[in-house]
């Protein structure tokens, strides 16, 4: 095992390509602040070895993350978490919220619900959660 252990979990059963799974999980650690700017990431070979996947896959994930400025590689020193701009963090947060809603709406439609029923359910959940928060205080 490498010295830097990341709680990344990949699933071969998922339809999502492995490089994409690695990318998404690293992004969520970075955006949530669990991985802070300047923290070192494992080398490509080390992470590939930990995840039992190929260096080609990890390299692809790292390259994509570097292009999106989530991480940066310093020649001869390694790969580090970049200082991610607040607006980029917001963008990622918005994107995951959008995806979560999309999944929920897809499910509703799959269950043969119409637009009104879907919206009604959404309103109900929203109201319920607002109430719960209201009583407990924010």
């Amino acid at each position: 095992m490498s010295e830097i252990q990341l709680p990344i979990q990949i699933s071969e059963h998922s339809r999502e390509p492995i490089y994409h799974q690695i990318e998404q999980q690293l992004i969520s650690f970075i955006v949530s602040g669990q991985l802070k700017p300047g923290m070192p990431l494992p080398s490509i070979r080390a992470l590939a070895s930990d995840l039992s996947c190929s260096v080609i896959t990890v390299n692809r994930a790292y390259q994509n993350l570097e292009q999106r400025k989530f991480i940066q590689t310093v020649q001869g020193k390694g790969t580090f978490v970049a200082d991610v701009q607040a607006e980029e963090k917001q963008h990622v947060a918005d994107e995951s919220l959008y995806q979560a809603f999309r999944t929920a709406v897809e499910m509703s439609l799959r269950l043969q619900n119409d637009e009104a029923k879907t919206r009604e359910t959404f309103e109900k959940v929203l109201l319920e959660l607002m109430k719960e928060r209201g009583t407990k205080g924010r």
């Binding site: 080398s43 070979r45 080390a46 070895s49």
Partner: peptide
Amino acid sequence: FKEMLVEDAE
């Protein structure tokens, strides 16, 4: 053996 290969690769 696995660790050695990883370490060497760095």
